[in-house]
Computed example of a mutant assay.
Amino acid sequence: MTSTQTNRRVVVLTGASSGIGRAAAHELAARGHTVVLAARRAESLAALARELDPSGLRVLAVPTDVTDDASRRALIETARDHFGRVDVLVNNAGITVERGWWWDDPDPLRVLRVNLEAPVELTRLVLPEMRERRSGHIVNIGSVAGRAATHGMYSASKFGLRGFSLGLRRELLGTGVTVSLIAPGFVRSEMTASARLPMPGPEVVARAVADVLDHPRREVIVPSPYRVLAFLEYVFPKLGDRVARRVIYRRYGHEKG
């Protein structure tokens, strides 16, 4: 068996039907991994699976609502039934409050359920087999908003996911199970469609996801210029206040009293 073959893994990827998830699905499949695609949009998911692997042998679409416990369990059980194990869990599904202030949203806590609770619960489902096998990888897709906060509810979810990822990594030291956090800045996706910023495509994040499977890292910030932003937020938080005030005013200024 070649080294390339031994490095192929069974990867469960949430939020796979669009944006970063779709790009990650393409990258992981191109590198020879077996991919279980999870998202709510069944038709888009099935079409992506056919596109990536017409044979249906290495890519499986499993319509999933990550906020529903039964749906999460069905996803992991289906992956095991088809491929025997789960080597990697990529918690990519994420949402934000897209318009207005979070406190005006009728269900602002849904952001926490999708972005934080779902990764925790899915991780809990795959950890026993990974720890028993002494092999596995949890990859959480965070955000630079988990370093530099501008949106209360979204940043709360991403700060929480960062803390969960870094803490879990230490809890699992010596077990053979690895935890990585990928923290994107602005990249083109449905979530950033209204942002007026120059942005790279989601492929930059997809490559980072695939790369940490071969070269594990604790935390990766992409694109690279956002590493400077994270540093400045830590060293000069008042500068961050000024930038945030301008950004928030441009987006919501007409609503301010």
Rank of each mutant, 00 (worst) to 15 (best):
S3T: 15
T6H: 06
N7W: 00
N7R: 13
V11K: 04
V12A: 10
T14Y: 11
T14N: 09
S17R: 07
S18F: 02
S18W: 03
G21D: 12
A24R: 04
A25Y: 06
A25H: 08
A29T: 13
L37N: 05
A38T: 04
A39E: 09
R40T: 10
A49M: 06
E51H: 01
L52S: 05
P54V: 03
P54G: 09
G56K: 03
R58K: 13
V59R: 00
L60W: 04
A61H: 06
V62N: 08
P63Q: 10
D69C: 03
R72D: 02
L75H: 10
L75N: 09
I76Q: 05
E77N: 12
E77A: 15
A79T: 11
F83S: 11
G84C: 13
D87L: 01
D87Q: 00
V88P: 11
L89H: 04
A93V: 10
R99W: 11
G100H: 08
G100L: 11
W102F: 15
V111Y: 05
V111F: 06
L112S: 08
V114G: 11
L116E: 02
A118P: 02
E121Q: 14
E129W: 04
M130Y: 13
M130N: 14
R131I: 12
E132G: 01
R133A: 12
R134E: 14
R134S: 15
S135I: 03
S135R: 15
G136E: 10
G136S: 12
H137G: 07
I138E: 11
I138K: 12
N140K: 10
V144T: 12
A145V: 08
M153T: 15
M153H: 14
S155T: 07
A156C: 15
A156G: 15
S157L: 13
S157M: 13
S165I: 09
L173Q: 07
T175F: 00
V177C: 00
V179P: 12
S180D: 07
S180T: 13
A183V: 02
A183H: 07
P184N: 05
F186A: 15
F186Y: 15
F186L: 15
R188C: 03
S189F: 10
S189D: 12
M191A: 08
M191Q: 13
A193D: 11
A193L: 12
S194R: 13
R196N: 12
R196D: 14
R196M: 10
P200E: 10
E203P: 00
E203T: 01
R207C: 00
R207Y: 01
A208I: 01
A208F: 01
V209E: 01
P216R: 01
I221G: 03
V222C: 07
V222F: 04
P223N: 02
P223Q: 06
R227F: 05
V228G: 04
A230F: 01
F231S: 08
L232P: 01
Y234K: 05
V235A: 08
F236K: 01
K238A: 13
G240N: 12
R242E: 14
A244F: 10
A244Q: 03
A244T: 15
V247Q: 13
I248S: 07
Y249D: 13
Y252G: 00
E255P: 00
K256C: 06
G257N: 07
G257A: 03
